[in-house]
Design a binder for these strands. Sequence first.
DNA 1: GCCAACGTTGGC
DNA 2: GCCAACGTTGGC
Length: 149
Amino acid sequence: MKSEPSVFSIDDLARRPGRTDSWDGVRNYQARNMLRDEMQPGDCAFFYHSSCEEPGVAGVMKIVSRGQPDTAAFDRRSDYYDSGSTPAAPRWYSVDVQLQRKFKRVITLTELRAQRALAGLALLQRGNRLSVLPVSSAEWKCILSLAAD
DNA sequence: GCCAACGTTGGC
DNA sequence: GCCAACGTTGGC
């Protein structure tokens, strides 16, 4: 799951009560479908820092809710407001996430690209712009091994 | 349904 | 700041 650290970083999540926050503001239908239909409490996800000095994987989160309507879309004052989404017919979804672990260092995009085992990683495919992306079990293990102390 | 124009993402 | 790639919009 991607976030620009200038907007919301892994340290921001670490400071939240219970290290938990709602992952909202996703405004892409493919990503929405993953939040709404596929993610389950207990699933894990990497926290990826994008559009910053050192793009890469910063740590691990746990999903702690099912997909739920993104209430930011109902708030006229929110940057994520969407008049096309209503409580009766929500268009956008969020999940609650809890920080599990912040890596001692960011596993950089360059480093990810250098791994043969990650050749198929969705994040690395050309033109990818999704803010929520799948990771296979083998890819997960590979990235975790890069974060080993 | 097609497609050009435009906006956004995100690495560099 | 640049640019490639993609999504969305809207005219037809």
